[in-house]
Design a protein around this nucleic acid. Structure first.
Lengths: 177, 177
DNA sequence: CTAACCAATTGTATTTTGCAACTGGTTGCA
DNA sequence: TGCAACCAGTTGCAAAATACAATTGGTTAG
């Protein structure tokens, strides 16, 4: 397991974490998989930030090597690869939540791209736990979580609906001008 | 405030956060200031990971420009600069805590460099709040927090004592072989 | 049969990083 | 007063990472 860390700069947990995703793209790929439900190379290419295909290929390879993602053949298409989160990456959800909250508080975020972060912050640990359970179901084939409390809607759907509502309102406001 | 983000790739809070410290060094510098109490260039040069002086100078400049640090003259020495955390960087404490917990769980950390992360994780939000209050006192001149509950020892001292205890035990074990 | 789709790879230019040496000055001490 | 240690960087250069555009070799739907 530890072979890719042979040349690590130090055994500090923060440093080792940064050696994994201390760059401008790795966490964005994981963000799109986690919150955007993206599983394929081509879906990941359509990121807000415009990643190029060689960088994406390189990062996916690295993340698979480090055990943060897994890669499998998609049965519906011989050339299609499907990427999955692992427990390792699913447990980044609280970090995403805090990172989003911090960014929303201190940086010039746009409303539509920060509504998810806002809801995730407001939902707290309970929502994060629920979301992680959903990801385990979707990516690891874990048994489905009890969804009776949440009205049958997944956390990702909740976030997505809120995002689209903001987009719709913005479009209406622009039309009204 | 937002001038340095004019060319940002997107208004997503996670993306904007990564544009600030999505590299291999910025968070390590902030870690050393936050947990190591380092305030001077030369102290920061002595990181576990061996940052080089040009990179350190570049990152300090960027972090000051972005409002994540401030820089002031040290009255004790004409050439000495003293760097301080701001509210922005003090509020990274929960992110450090989660990042440390994640790294400790999934990466090949060393015992002595992860004992702090372990204590910080165990201490939870209450400990993080206490620590942030201490940092505000130390870096922003905020009024001292009520320290009666904690036996007069600061969180940083608690972490440091634990770190040194591990080092001492390791030295004793090596001597006993 | 063909156009769209698929996950990349290739080539090249630019930018960032890493490393070592060096700068111009300040301070403590003998 | 002179000298060594200290101070925050800067400079020059090589190596690595990144960005961008074009292309590859194959698959699939209509």
């Amino acid at each position: 397991m530890n072979e890719e860390f042979r040349e690590s700069r130090s055994g500090c947990p923060i440093n080792l974490s940064l050696e994994v995703f201390g760059d401008k793209w790795s966490l964005l790929i994981l963000r799109d998989m986690t919150f955007g439900g993206k599983r394929h190379f081509r879906e990941l290419m359509r990121s807000q930030e415009g990643i190029s295909s060689n960088i994406l290929a390189d990062r996916l390879k690295m993340l698979v090597e480090k055990g943060i993602l897994t890669k499998a053949d998609d049965p519906t298409h011989k050339q299609k690869a499907i990427y999955s989160l692992t427990e390792m990456s699913i447990e980044l959800v609280p970090i995403f939540a805090h990172l989003g909250a911090w960014g929303r508080r201190w940086l010039p975020v746009s409303e539509e791209l920060s509504i998810r972060a806002q809801l995730l912050e407001a939902g707290g640990q309970a929502m994060w736990d629920e979301f992680m359970a959903e990801l385990r179901e979707e990516h690891l084939g874990a048994p489905p979580p009890d969804r009776s409390r949440t009205g049958g809607r997944t956390v990702r759907q909740t976030l997505q609906v809120a995002y689209e509502a903001v987009l719709a309102r913005q479009a209406a406001e622009r039309a009204a001008e």
